[in-house]
Design a protein around this nucleic acid. Structure first.
Lengths: 182, 182
DNA sequence: AACGCGATATATCTTTTTGATATATTATAT
DNA sequence: ATATAATATATCAAAAAGATATATCGCGTT
């Protein structure tokens, strides 16, 4: 069966909600998962081919004909659902974080304080914009939390809001310290 | 010159502080940078070879002879320092975050609420342990913040403390909601 | 009607990185 | 004396990112 490809689990998870094409999957990742996960076409299409060969997914008829050019839709199989559940039931999870912002800050002593302040400000502006979007999602989702599926989506958004607000508090504090230091 | 290898900048940054071997570099990454960056031997040694060929670093005599087996130490060159500064002065930074914890939670509807609670608890325990270490670093560093180089280290630790405390607040809230939902 | 352009859609290639493994040396504990 | 843990370098396969190629479709402009 599947080895250790995380993208397989992303795809199986998304297909457990609805039938999707590779292009649809990319859109779902970019929209709903973007602030805690990423995925490229270069990993999605090979994963789809491999998982179809292994019987974890199968080609499905394009139900909602969006009118656009023909697409190859996939559905999850019972074997695929088993693989997904077995992954979900393992509580251990690897969180792989790479903050280039922090890396630049760590080596900030090589240049002047203003360079580090600029790096923090660029980060701050990105987060302010992203937080606005997240808060919109949060507002929409909190209206119908009775829907059992929506609570999981809501909790990930809550995670984003909580961490982003922490980022912004840190940006202010860090810039204050750097200005004082000169 | 160098293309787009982030590991190059990590190594150049560390070498701007002191001469190091590949093994030393790995230790520095695992200790000082671990909660916001990672690096494997499989990327460090090829990067060292490539950057030496390009003249960004050079072999250096092993100053502090630690008594252990001989090691190949490297020093940054003036070209290397130029490359490092040019990277630092670009305020744009890519922060690449992959939370498998959040991914599992997002698909939590496939299994029962207890499965998601277990995933959150495993995350919570990891963060509690890591936060303890970070707070120790923070206490040590805040004693001598007059040292110009230490402030940058301190700020990255502050970032870790702020985000980890946010994680823990979220863990409590998320578990409360999942327990209520059942 | 012809044209260009942006969105949709699949696929593949190169480069970067991880994770595993191989190999050898030195220090330490039993 | 011997096992084993830490030190040290190196390489390989697998995974993923990022870039690029190719083609279709819908829409607005001229």
């Amino acid at each position: 069966m599947a080895k250790d490809r995380k993208i397989d689990m992303v795809i199986l998870g998304l297909l457990s909600h609805e039938n999707l094409s590779g292009y649809d999957i990319k859109k779902r990742i970019d929209n709903a998962l973007s602030f805690f996960w990423k995925g490229s076409f270069g990993s999605i299409y090979p994963s789809l081919s491999a998982m179809e060969k292994d019987g974890l997914i199968r080609k499905a008829e394009n139900t909602e004909n969006s009118g656009s050019r023909e697409k190859i839709c996939y559905a999850i199989t019972s074997d695929g659902k088993k693989a997904l559940i077995s992954w979900l039931e393992d509580a251990k999870a690897v969180n792989d974080l790479k903050y280039e912002t922090l890396l630049k800050l760590f080596f900030g002593g090589v240049t002047d304080a203003q360079t580090s302040i600029n790096t923090i400000t660029a980060f701050e502006n990105e987060i302010i914009a992203a937080l606005e979007v997240l808060k919109m999602y949060q507002a929409n989702l909190s209206n119908n939390l009775d829907n059992k599926d929506h609570i999981y989506y809501y909790l990930t958004v809550l995670f984003g809001v909580e961490t982003y607000e922490g980022y912004l508090r840190w940006c202010k504090e860090a810039k204050k310290m750097l200005v004082k230091q000169g």
